[in-house]
Design a binder for these strands. Structure first.
Lengths: 112, 112
DNA sequence: TGGTATAGTACACAAAATGATACTATGGAG
DNA sequence: CTCCATAGTATCATTTTGTGTACTATACCA
């Protein structure tokens, strides 16, 4: 394995990926391409409006997702992954797959 | 991309990977194989003792790292990645690499 | 006229994560 | 006798994250 440099870059990656919701939001966006605010809410019913807004803003600030506002009433706002955000796909995919196997691992431990 | 199942497994992966410190601890352990408590502290001077202890315990509980206590004074405790923990390597590698590129991305934005 | 839908914001509050600092036990070195 | 080193624990303060509820504007539908 390659040596970790003095100023460990992994922390930067984390700043963007961590939080209870970001990876899930990103996985859904990767999957569907584009989603409106309330579509995201319906997909993740446990997240509050405030949290969703906050996470989306942070991802937008980091240039991971795009936010397009249509001047309509009722409002319409579409979110999608930026080109740059797509570079996160390998990490998200790896997490997703690992998560699956991890569930199996736990089931074994508990003899389910 | 494959469809995300009802009960999204990514959250499980996250429970283990998130936290400001876990991926960094794991990367160092992957790199060095085995490290003592204070060696980890020296490598990551910003982490507090309490946090390091906590993160290590959590990783141990999840069967990601091993903790071996040598009955000596002063105490000696060695940490290493379990076989199961090694399955996280692809994620950690992906994060590490992405973190590097992300730093470049930011430098470009700021014209550094 | 009243209800529904959208994409939020504002405020009060609770809970969880993280941080700062001090403290412990004890063998060995000087 | 004093100080150092190790691998922690204990306590308190602060920061981040999350929850709950109420509120907004306005086109469309009945």
């Amino acid at each position: 394995m390659e040596k970790i440099p003095e100023y460990c870059k992994v922390e930067d990656a984390l700043g963007i990926l961590v939080g209870k919701w970001k990876p899930i939001i990103l996985l859904h966006l990767l999957q569907k391409g584009t989603l409106r605010f309330n579509e995201l809410r319906r997909i993740m019913p446990e997240i509050t409006q405030k949290m969703l807004t906050k996470q989306l803003r942070e991802l937008e600030d980091e240039d991971i997702i795009d936010r397009v506002v249509y001047p309509q009433v009722p409002p319409k706002v579409e979110y999608s992954i930026t080109k740059y955000g797509q570079t996160l796909e390998p990490i998200l995919e790896a997490m997703h797959e690992w998560g699956m196997n991890h569930t199996m691992h736990k089931m074994k431990q508990k003899n389910m």
